[in-house]
């Protein structure tokens, strides 16, 4: 469904991503793991059209989308939950969700998406008339995911869902993502929390200093010496 080939990207004179290639198949839940500053978020932003790639190709369903503007990428069915969430803090929860369905013209489809999001996160239904800026951290995360789902994406990109959340809340968010994936949604996830992520995803890539150093099934990666040493060592 998504194929990234030899992607180079960065900011100013600083190259952050060096020739990354990765692939996400229909219905998969794939994670991009790695330490801070490895280029995970930049990769995701390139796919979503928020950062212009320097080199390489990004193909979605066979069509090249590299360098396409973010609003157009969204229109093709790629939803992004960014690291900073980018919620509209001066709007209510309801309005934020409505904005998520900005490019969905059918009212009926919007209503069904809304019902779905509220059933996934009942908490949001309770907070419906509240300003997004006044929500708690966990609720914001749910709202951001909900907003991305409102557009009815076929591929969901999620940047650091565990960031800033307590373990219990993280688990709730992870459960929701797992459930979405089980329902057939394709998800590409960026995470630093390696243990919890590997328990949930199908496949993963490990990114270090802008390059992919390991890839494989979650099972295979959990058993890899490198992952054990570098990421699981402290906890195991």
């Amino acid at each position: 469904m998504l194929r990234v080939t030899e992607l180079d990207a960065g900011y100013g004179f600083l190259r952050v991503v060096h020739g990354i290639s990765l692939q996400v198949n229909q219905g998969e839940l794939v994670a991009l793991l790695g330490p801070n500053g490895a280029g995970k978020s930049t990769t995701l932003k390139c796919i979503a059209g928020l950062v212009r790639p320097w080199k390489g190709d990004i193909a979605f369903r066979g069509h090249s989308i590299g360098g396409l503007r973010g609003d157009l990428v969204n229109g093709l069915g790629i939803g992004l939950v960014s690291e900073s969430l980018n919620l509209f803090t001066g709007m209510t929860v309801y309005e934020n969700l409505l904005m998520g369905a900005y490019s969905v013209p059918e009212a009926e489809k919007r209503r069904r998406s809304l019902d779905f999001v509220f059933s996934l996160f009942p908490r949001l239904a309770e907070r419906r008339p509240q300003l997004a800026g006044t929500l708690s951290g966990g609720e914001r995360k749910m709202l951001a995911i909900g907003r991305a789902l409102m557009g009815g994406p076929s591929l969901l990109l999620v940047d650091e869902p565990s960031l800033g959340l307590a373990p219990k809340l993280t688990q709730q968010v992870f459960d929701a993502l797992r459930k979405l994936s089980d329902d057939g949604l394709t998800i590409l996830l960026v995470e630093q929390n390696v243990t919890a992520t590997l328990e949930m995803v199908d496949r993963a890539y490990v990114l270090e200093q802008g390059e992919i150093v390991l890839e494989g099934s979650a099972q295979k990666l959990s058993e890899s010496e490198h992952v054990k040493d570098v990421y699981l060592g402290v906890m195991a």
Partner: peptide, 24 residues
Amino acid sequence: SRIGRAIRAVSQDEPGALMVGINV
């Protein structure tokens, strides 16, 4: 209005507006 909400969205969070498909 839909347009007005989009305008407010751009003023509140530009990347966010782009992410939901608004032609900023």
